[in-house]
Amino acid sequence: MAAKIEVEVEVNSPADQFWEAIRDSTNLFPKIFSQQYKSVEIVEGDGKSAGSIRLISYAEGMQGIPFVKFAKEKIEAVDHEKKLVTYSVIDGEILNYYKSFGPTLAVASKAGGGAVVTWSVEYEKLNEDVPEADIIKELAVQTLKELDAYLLKNKKGA
C-alpha cells in the first residue's frame, strides 16, 4: 500500500533564489553538501527538465541512511510557474526497501519575504518490515535548511 510523508520548511531565502538553487542541485549539492553527496552526474537530458536522469553517489557512511550508496533518479515533472519538481527513484539501494519512491519539492513565496518549501515523498514499502521513510524526511529537512543558510551567507558576501 502506498504511503506519503510531507513536511513544510520555512526558509529566509527568496522563493526565486531557492528554486534556482534546487534547479542547479546537480552542481550545487556536491559542493555544498560534500558530507552527503560524493557526486551528481547527468545520465540523460539536461538534469533540469522532465525526462532527465541523474546518478547520485552518496558519501561513505552518510548520516542517517548509510545503507544507500547511490540512486538513479528521473525527473518526472517540472512546473516553473509553481516552482515544483517531481522525481522518481529508478535504481539504487533504496529500491531494496521500497517498490516505488517519488519525492516532490515545491517552493512558494511567503508573505513578508522568504519562502515555504514543501517536500513530500510517495512510496510503497516492499514489505511490512521496512521502516517508514521518516529518516529520509529528516535528511531532506536538514538539507533544505542548510541550503537556505548557504544561500543567505553567499548573498551577503556578494
Rank of each mutant, 00 (worst) to 15 (best):
E6I: 12
V7P: 02
V9N: 07
E10C: 11
V11M: 06
A15M: 01
E20G: 07
A21Q: 02
T26N: 12
F29R: 11
P30G: 06
P30W: 08
K31G: 05
I32A: 03
I32N: 08
F33K: 04
S34R: 13
K38C: 05
S39H: 08
S39E: 11
S39R: 08
V40N: 11
E41P: 04
E41M: 09
E44C: 10
G45Y: 06
G45P: 09
D46M: 03
D46A: 02
S49Q: 02
G51Y: 03
S52H: 08
I56M: 11
I56K: 07
G61S: 02
V68I: 15
K69V: 03
K69E: 13
F70L: 11
K74V: 00
K74S: 09
V78F: 01
D79F: 04
D79A: 10
D79H: 09
D79R: 07
K82I: 08
T86D: 09
Y87V: 01
S88T: 06
V89Q: 02
D91L: 08
G92T: 05
G92H: 04
E93S: 07
I94V: 14
I94F: 09
I94N: 02
N96Q: 14
Y98K: 08
Y98P: 09
F101Y: 15
P103M: 06
A106R: 14
A106N: 09
V107F: 03
A108P: 06
S109T: 10
G113F: 07
G114N: 03
A115Y: 04
T118I: 00
W119S: 01
Y123W: 05
